[in-house]
């Protein structure tokens, strides 16, 4: 998979997370998940886990390439 395609997938998944984050369908739901966790909390904890998975995927398929071996400059251009 090329990097451009990877970036498109990550952008799509982040947009999906943002849509899922606005869970208007859970607004009035007071049935606790696992018997104790408010839905408003459980759903968004799930969003946190989802975000972590998406960012893991991003590091695999959309990570930018840098030349880590470039020499470190000690001067800004204006100093020069």
């Amino acid at each position: 998979m090329n990097k451009r395609c990877g970036k498109c997938i990550i952008i799509g998944l982040v947009c999906l997370l943002i849509v899922l984050h606005h869970d208007i369908w859970n607004w009035d739901n007071k049935d606790p998940v696992f018997g104790f966790m408010p839905v408003a909390l459980a759903w968004h904890a799930g969003i946190s886990i989802g975000a972590s998975l998406v960012w893991y995927l991003a590091t695999r398929i959309a990570w930018p390439t840098f030349d880590d071996d470039e020499p470190t400059s000690s001067m800004t251009s204006e100093d020069a």
């Binding site: 982040v14 408003a40 969003i47 946190s48």
Partner: peptide, 22 residues
């Protein structure tokens, strides 16, 4: 304000903070 506070800032921060790092 209740349990919705997590969605207000925590789950959104999970998405946005990492986005900013990235």
């Amino acid at each position: 304000e209740g349990a919705g506070v997590y969605g207000l800032l925590a789950s959104s921060s999970g998405i946005i903070h990492s986005l900013c790092f990235f």
